[in-house]
Amino acid sequence: MRYSTQVRPVSYLKANAADVLTDLNERREPVLITQNGQAKAVLVDVVSFEETQETLALLKILALGQREIEAGETVDARTAIAALKDRLAPSA
């Protein structure tokens, strides 16, 4: 995705905020906001933002798992399943 197609100066955003928000929600393409010719912010629709946050959370979980594997902090599947069964078993 190229952000260069959705570049707007902050003055445009100030004058056309409602239109920018409508366009964001319809097209779901980020809008790059510039100030004095320099990129200063990126506006995204809420759905895209939430999807990005979910993706980042999953990537963090994968990275943590990878670190645990590299540190040897793992157990085999049978041991893990047995531990879960013991934990979930009703007490007598």
Rank of each mutant, 00 (worst) to 15 (best):
R2K: 13
Y3T: 06
Y3M: 08
S4P: 00
T5F: 05
T5Y: 04
Q6H: 11
Q6E: 14
V7R: 05
R8E: 05
V10P: 00
S11F: 00
S11Q: 06
Y12A: 11
K14G: 12
A15K: 15
N16G: 01
A18P: 00
D19I: 04
L21N: 11
T22A: 11
D23T: 05
D23Y: 11
D23I: 01
N25V: 05
N25R: 07
N25E: 07
E26Y: 10
E26Q: 15
R28C: 10
E29R: 15
P30D: 06
L32T: 08
L32S: 03
L32R: 02
I33N: 00
I33P: 00
Q35M: 08
N36P: 02
G37H: 00
Q38A: 00
A39F: 06
A39E: 03
A41V: 06
A41P: 01
V42R: 05
L43V: 04
V44R: 09
D45M: 05
D45P: 00
V46Q: 12
V46Y: 14
V46M: 12
V47W: 05
V47A: 03
V47Q: 07
V47R: 08
V47D: 02
S48E: 06
F49R: 03
E51S: 04
Q53M: 11
Q53N: 04
E54K: 05
E54C: 01
T55L: 06
T55G: 01
A57I: 07
L58N: 03
K60G: 01
L62V: 14
L62D: 13
L62Y: 12
L64F: 10
L64D: 15
L64E: 15
G65W: 00
Q66P: 00
Q66M: 11
R67G: 02
R67L: 05
R67E: 12
I69A: 14
I69L: 12
E70M: 03
A71N: 12
G72L: 08
E73V: 00
T74Q: 05
D76Q: 11
A77K: 11
A77I: 13
R78E: 10
R78N: 12
T79I: 09
T79M: 09
A80W: 14
I81V: 15
A82Y: 15
A82D: 15
A83S: 07
L84P: 02
R87V: 02
L88K: 02
L88D: 10
L88R: 06
P90M: 02
P90W: 01
P90V: 09
